[in-house]
Design a protein around this nucleic acid. Structure first.
Length: 1129
RNA sequence: ACAGCUGUAGCUCAGUUGGCAGAGCGCUCCCCUGAUAAGGGAGAGGUCACUGGUUCGAUGCCAGUCAGCUGUACCA
């Protein structure tokens, strides 16, 4: 049997996807799409590693669709696109999952369970959902090389990361320092912002707050403050955490804030005082009624008497010194620099006093401004000589704190039943009141973070951490950012740009267990240090240590330096539980232990450009070819995550950018615009969605509905619509083609018919098609997939399916296998194939199916659409003129159809004539070229173009705003009214004489045809409609001939219905009997050949109705009945 | 609180170097019926979030406000 184009009953996208997956597997299509591009220019893509510890969600389908689109697009654009998968395997979520599973907490590690057991559990857990992920990857049609992924816990990966760290260290970009971090004393661990943002961690609590009085020391720096008062002068500063007051070393003011000096009395001691606070806040603390009253008038109620004594700017206050408020201890370093006023940009007058109590050991802002100003933190010398804060890691005051020593800073930290009546905060408040140092003490409700594990309030606590000195490379980072093409631009300039402008050093340390250990070993007092940049280096150091006797043996004895095999690397493990046992020896012969921290997991993923290739130990060439990336894409939430870490590491370690183009996509919300969450049950299941609607429709919907960087309101109804509109239109178009191509045996064997000699309609769609290739390509090139998808969709639905196919149907089912028919086949074939190629990045399954089906007979092209190349744009076929006149035809047709509707004249009833007024020759010649198209579509015999000065026409005029506006400006409104009111004669004068003088607000002005738009509104006696610049008038007279012809068409229609109802094939020939009567007889005789051709009837007999057995009664039009019978020949 | 994005028809979204606002879906009515779980026509439906400014003219430009979302921060 002869081969045919496959025909389908209906479209099932999900089934198509399954089928194509099989084919791809069998033919190794993905591998081929890379293999066949060997030697071509590479297009480098980096995969941001997901964590297989969690299940994938619908947003992953979104993110990966975007990645996939550009990789596929660049492949069919001729590039070679390798894409290596990756897995992010470290980090807190993994640890938490394991702890939950094992029923343990962090404190149990090292006690109930060894670090090794813990890490083994993590290693197993982290790849828990790998299968699910691989399944999703496959089902959604995401092409990424999953056979050889990079995995961040592998020794080779870690070794590369160590190498980067050692590079940074050598460039002096690593340092150890204190930083204030959220810390949970009861859990004994620092918390990440991620942990702090868990729901329920911020709670309203009622705390004792104090406005403390810091006594100003009078000297040359502060004389200005004493000019207008005799009282003792105090700075007022508010705190919600009185326990930090002993650690105060500075007060911070805003340079541009105005401060007032107020003479008053202390409400607790009644002593006269002068206090300094922000002018804006005076009214908040001092009652207007008491202004200017004397101290004796104070009765303990209604506020204290007061009087403004002076005003200063913040700058005036800077550097003034004050007495230490609670002199338990002095800072160990530079105490002379402490206890003075400094400036900070974060100070506001929203609450407090406009002067901020600054304790650099317990506040991040505090630490920052203090460091800038050279104010020391309140650290005292600990046992090893190192600085320690006044509060220990359990949350208790240290021994040096006298009466406070050993007390917890928060009552919540005491074990149940042991809580003292008075909290430290209250004790301090009482003491300050007694010492005339408390201006105001009150309870205050505020929002404060709590540890989500212990439920206790957290502390901001200084922890020893390793930092990457990103601030040192700030300008370089900003400069490099300008080389990156961000989509959308605003994320790069705004969110990311601002982030870089306000850059802080990157805190690398995490006191965790499952992660990449910091490869730094130090001696006891931290004076000697070594950083390890490779296993080779480590082994060399171990050997020294063993030789020196600080270590017994080499745990990596089996490892063979220089052997890059997996087996060799499997003999070692670079995780904490192993490397912590390694003790190295310093140059002076002291033992050195590893710094106990792990590094931030973000550093893991930011190292992937290098570590995925085990660079620089292996694959140097591969790395160089694949760096930097041409393209990456992830969610906006990665702006400060992966996007930043890639950028920072590239800039710091290699002075380069890591990626050239980046798309940061928005979130996938539910259909009401709410965040999806499993808890709320509004999260869409990706597998269910893909199964039910198919990956193609899901992908197409996600991409075309909203720009990738806008949030997507994910609505399943939307996918259904995409299926119905786009895929079904495309599929129907193909089915239509396949049906007739099979009948006629079209195999694209004939010579290519020159486009120039094809009919107007074909040249039109091919012009549109070439424009499409061009615009879609440039959309993809500009990383605008939404635009690309919408363009394709418009073309398929509007141009190809609803216009070209509609107008060309007859060409397929009628007549011989003529030149015209072949042209039609070649045209539609080319359109379909090109659409398949263009849409393949977005809808990889259906497009390949379509492409293969088209190829199944002609077999003249690449095996898969994903290996094919985008057809070259043939500029010579693009004809704007042609496209615009087809628009005119569409408009004219639509007008005629509207007129028919108005008169209830069905389209099958032919009509005689339409009139179209043509104002100029170009318009006329455009119209003439599409006359056939219009006549065909609207079933009218003839178009007559009439002169615009034809008396029949009633003119319509509109001002040309953009032209006149520029010339007449203010008078535009009056002019518009005037023009709209012009008479028919005046309009014609403009049109034919070329000008008209009118009076505008007492002034004579001349209107020319360019100043206005003139159209025809009406042709008296005709049915007229107009839209934009097209007007049509329809002659609705139905002559006898037209009537018979119309009936003939009705008859054809009825016969066709019967054919269809009888289940005949489109190619079956038939014999027809029709019951005789006068009108029907005329109609048939008049149209005999036409009817027979259309219906494929060998015989068409008129017989007496009584002679027809089993005929079917039909009504041709109202009052005209007959009986028809058809038989297959 | 700060920053970014968004705000156009009932819904999802286009649009405009500034010139009386569009599509699809949905809704109402009708037509068509060899693409048929399609197709065509007509209709209803808008203060282009709000306020002020620039302009002859603002949905568009400028300033501010409000709302939604996201991120960062939560600090005295």
């Amino acid at each position: 049997m002869e081969k045919k184009y496959p025909e389908y009953k209906q479209l099932n996208l999900s089934q198509v996807a399954d089928e194509m997956l099989e084919v791809w597997k069998r033919e190794k299509t993905f591998e081929q799409s890379i293999e066949t591009r060997k030697g071509k220019e590479p297009y480098v893509f980096y995969e941001g590693p997901p964590s297989a510890n969690g299940l994938p969600g619908i947003h992953h389908v979104m993110a990966r669709t975007i990645k996939d689109i550009f990789c596929r697009y660049k492949t069919i654009a001729g590039f070679q696109v390798k894409r290596k998968a990756g897995w992010d395997t470290h980090g807190l979520p993994v640890e938490l999952g394991v702890e939950k599973e094992l029923g343990i907490t962090k404190e149990d590690i090292g006690k109930k369970i060894s670090v090794q057991q813990y890490n083994d559990a993590c290693r197993k857990a982290v790849m828990r959902y790998t299968d699910v992920w691989n399944d999703l990857t496959e089902k959604m049609g995401y092409w990424v090389d999953m056979d050889d992924p990079y995995i961040t816990y592998e020794n080779k990966y870690i070794e590369s990361v160590w190498n980067i760290l050692s590079e940074l260290y050598k460039k002096d970009f690593l340092y150890k320092g204190y930083t204030i971090q959220p810390y949970s004393p009861k859990a004994g661990t620092g918390l990440s912002t991620h942990e702090l943002n868990q729901p329920g961690t911020y709670r309203d609590v009622k705390d004792t707050t104090i406005i403390a009085q810091f006594r100003v020391i009078q000297n040359e720096r502060s004389n200005r403050l004493f000019e207008n008062t005799k009282n003792e002068v105090f700075f007022l500063a508010w705190t919600t955490t009185p326990w930090t007051l002993p650690s105060n070393t500075a007060l911070t003011v805003g340079k541009n804030i105005q401060y007032a000096e107020v003479e008053t009395i202390n409400q607790y001691t009644r002593k006269p005082i002068s206090v300094i606070l922000a002018s804006d806040l005076v009214a908040k603390y001092f009652n207007a009624d008491m202004e200017g009253k004397s101290a004796s008038e104070y009765n303990g109620k209604g506020g204290v008497p007061w009087k403004k004594a002076d005003e200063f700017s913040g700058a005036d206050l800077v550097n003034a010194q004050y007495e230490q408020l609670l002199p338990y201890t002095l800072p160990m370093d530079n105490p002379e620099e402490a206890f003075r006023v400094i400036a900070g940009d974060f100070v506001t007058t929203v609450d407090g006093t406009g002067i901020v109590h600054t304790a650099p050991t317990f506040g991040a802002d505090d630490a920052r401004v203090a460091k800038v100003a050279g104010v020391p933190p309140m650290l005292v010398e600990g046992e090893g000589g190192q600085g320690i804060p006044l509060v220990d890691l359990q949350g208790r005051f240290i021994d040096q704190m006298g009466d406070l020593a050993g007390k917890y800073v928060k009552n919540e930290y005491y074990d149940a039943g042991k809580t003292p009546d008075m909290s430290v905060d209250v004790e301090i408040a009482i003491r300050l009141k007694e010492e005339n140092r408390a201006f105001k003490v009150e309870k205050y409700v505020h929002n404060y973070p709590h540890c989500w594990r212990t439920d206790k309030p957290i502390l901001y606590y200084p922890l020893d951490s390793w930092f990457v000195k990103t601030t040192a490379a700030k300008s370089k980072l900003i400069e490099n950012n300008k080389k990156i093409n961000w989509k959308p631009k605003s994320t790069g300039e705004g969110r990311f740009g601002n982030w870089l402008e306000n850059l802080q050093d990157w805190n690398l340390s995490r006191s965790r267990y499952w992660g990449i250990p910091i490869p730094i070993w130090s001696n006891e007092d931290g004076t000697e240090r070594i950083i390890i940049g490779s296993v080779e280096e480590l082994k060399a150091e171990i050997k020294k240590a063993v030789d020196a006797g600080v270590m017994d043996n080499d745990p990596f004895a089996d490892f063979e330096v220089g052997n890059m095999s997996k087996a060799n690397y499997d003999t070692i493990d670079l995780h904490k539980h192993i490397v912590d046992d390694i003790v190295l020896v310093s140059e002076s012969g002291q033992p050195m232990r590893r710094e106990s921290d792990l590094i931030d997991v973000w550093f893991d993923s930011g190292s992937m450009p290098y570590a995925q290739w085990h660079y620089p130990f292996e694959n140097k060439e591969v790395f160089e070819q694949n760096y930097p990336a041409d393209f990456i894409a992830e969610g906006v939430d990665q702006t400060r995550g992966w996007f930043f870490t890639l950028h920072a590491i590239a800039t710091l370690a290699y002075d380069s950018i890591a990626y050239k183009n980046v798309i940061s996509n928005g979130l996938v919300l539910d259909k009401n615009g709410h965040k999806m969450s499993k808890r709320l049950g509004n999260a869409a299941d990706p597998f269910e969605t893909l199964k039910k609607y198919g990956a193609d429709a899901t992908r197409w919907y996600m991409i075309t509905n909203a720009q990738p960087w806008d949030n997507l309101k994910f609505d399943l109804e939307g996918i259904v619509e995409i299926q119905r509109k786009f895929f079904r239109a495309l599929h129907n178009t193909y089915s239509f083609f396949a049906l007739y191509a099979n009948v006629d045996g079209f195999k694209f064997e004939e010579d290519y018919i020159e486009v120039a000699s094809r009919p107007e309609i074909d040249r039109w769609i091919l012009s549109k098609l070439n424009s499409l290739v061009k615009t879609v390509s440039s959309s993809f090139d500009n990383y605008e997939p939404t635009q690309a998808g919408r363009l394709i969709q418009d073309f398929v639905v509007n141009d190809l399916s609803n216009w070209w196919v509609r107008l060309c149907r007859k060409r397929f089912w009628r007549g011989d296998y003529s030149e015209d028919k072949i042209a039609a086949y070649q045209t539609i074939y080319e359109c379909l194939k090109t659409v398949a190629v263009l849409s393949s990045p977005i809808a990889p399954f259906y497009s390949d199916k379509l492409y293969r089906d088209l190829n199944s007979i002609t077999a003249n092209d690449a095996e898969s659409v994903h290996i094919s190349l985008i057809p070259e744009v043939n500029e010579s076929l693009m004809d704007g003129e042609l496209e615009s006149r087809m628009e005119l035809a569409q408009r004219a047709s639509s007008l005629v159809l509207a007129l028919r509707k108005k008169q209830n004249i069905r389209v099958r009833q032919p009509l005689g004539k339409i009139l179209i007024p043509v104002s100029d020759e170009t318009f006329k010649s455009k119209m003439e070229k599409v006359t056939d198209v219009i006549l065909n579509e609207v079933n009218v015999k003839e178009i007559e173009f009439i002169d615009p000065n034809n008396e029949l026409l009633v003119k319509q005029i509109k001002p040309n705003f953009s032209k006149l506006g520029r010339a007449y400006g203010k008078q535009m409104k009056a002019l518009a009214t005037l023009i709209n009111g012009l008479s028919q004669e005046q309009i014609k004068a403009i049109e034919f004489k070329g000008e008209l003088e009118v009076e505008l607000e007492g002034q004579l002005i001349t209107l020319t045809p360019e100043d206005v738009e003139i159209g025809s509104k009406d042709v008296p006696g005709w049915l007229v409609a107009s839209e934009a610049n097209v007007t049509v008038a329809l002659d609705i007279t139905i002559t006898d001939d037209l009537k018979f012809e119309g009936l003939g068409r009705e008859l054809v229609n009825r016969i066709q219905n019967l054919r269809k109802d009888s289940g005949l094939e489109v190619t079956d020939r038939i014999n027809v009997k029709v019951a005789k009567n006068d009108i029907v007889q005329n109609a048939i005789n008049y149209n005999l050949n036409y009817i027979r051709t259309e219906t494929l009837s060998d015989n068409l007999d008129l017989v007496e109705g009584t002679l027809i057995e089993n005929g079917v009664g039909v009504e041709l039009e109202e009052g005209i009945d007959t009986i028809i019978k058809i038989e297959k020949v």
